[in-house]
Design a protein around this nucleic acid. Structure first.
Length: 296
DNA sequence: CGCCAGGTGCTGA
DNA sequence: TCAGCACATGGC
């Protein structure tokens, strides 16, 4: 067990804001009375994988408690994954340019854009298209069970994310049987591309947003929205501004741009919020998804 | 039961 | 370039 300093951070908001699909809130064993509330909230521990390493994390105030079975998962790698090295107050002040994002920041301060693995993010968001988060989670869980490697920590049992070579070698029929639907051939083709070096994932981390997005658009099953998600969550392109159906509705409602196409909304938002537009998007997205009646 | 979901690819104007 | 359409599946 070790600790990492985590100022200006909300683990809960970061893990539940629809950027990562595989973290699991630990649920305490069923007990007698009063277990309902604990069951709902968990006990604060989240189990998941960072790269190939299984870890459990919990936030206590301004620090992160971590436990892992992999010595390669150092505090520095934890800091990197949760983006704790970035100056969040400076980022938030740069995007705090209107009342809507101001309210979202006020409600979810501490939400950070994670630095996830590029391939895992790409594969995950191909599966996420025209889909809902509950089913995305199930699909990825089955995909990892079928093609990943088993890992364990304390009582938790999970699976690593499959390598592109493995998915590329899977049959479309089997992928469909995991519930991927029409995305199965897209995922397989993109896995083949990545496995063969047709998408230079290491290089993409070092190039700019435009170049990274163009490269991502060359993958099967990747359009504007998925490319923006992968650029933002998997390749640290903070200018990316993914617009899904929720964001599109919200922008039409909040910003009164009812006639603009998705592309026009995208261009407008990037100019409006600046180099950290992706952070603005994530705060707005999480805010509308957690509204639950706050809206009319 | 119908409606919806962190859309994409294809077609035809 | 842009609107219109098909596409699989399961949660609600």
């Amino acid at each position: 067990m070790f600790e990492v300093a985590a100022p200006d951070f909300s683990l809960q908001a970061s893990l539940s804001s629809g950027q990562a699909f595989r973290w699991k809130a630990h649920l305490p064993a069923p007990r007698d009375s009063g277990a309902d509330e604990a069951r709902q909230a968990g006990d604060g521990w989240f189990y998941g994988l960072i790269g190939p390493s299984v870890v459990k994390v919990r936030q206590e105030g301004g620090r992160l408690l971590c436990e892992t079975s992999d010595p390669a998962l150092t505090p520095d790698r934890i800091r990197r994954y949760f983006a704790l090295d970035l100056d969040l107050p400076a980022i938030l002040s740069s995007i705090n340019v209107d009342m809507q994002v101001h309210q979202a920041i006020r409600r979810h301060r501490g939400l950070r854009v994670l630095r996830q693995d590029g391939w895992e993010t790409l594969a995950s968001f191909i599966c996420a298209s025209f889909n809902n988060i509950k089913r995305i989670e199930g699909m990825l869980e089955r995909l990892c069970q079928a093609y990943g490697e088993p890992v364990a920590l304390n009582g938790f049992r999970g699976f690593s994310f499959p390598r592109p070579e493995t998915i590329a070698g899977a049959s479309e029929r089997r992928l469909r049987s995991l519930g991927l639907g029409y995305r199965a051939p897209y995922l397989k083709a993109t896995a083949r591309l990545v496995a063969d070096g047709g998408l230079p994932t290491e290089h993409l981390r070092r190039v700019g947003y435009d170049a990274a997005k163009q490269a991502l658009l060359g993958c099967d099953g990747v359009g504007d929205k998925v490319a923006d998600c992968v650029a933002l969550f998997g390749f640290e392109k903070y200018e990316a501004f993914p617009i899904d159906v929720w964001m599109e509705r919200a922008m039409r409602y909040y910003f009164r741009h009812r006639r603009m196409t998705r592309k026009a909304l995208h261009d407008y938002a990037r100019r409006h919020f600046g180099p950290y537009a992706g952070y603005a998007q994530q705060y707005l997205y999480h805010d509308i998804r957690t509204a639950r009646g706050r809206l009319s």
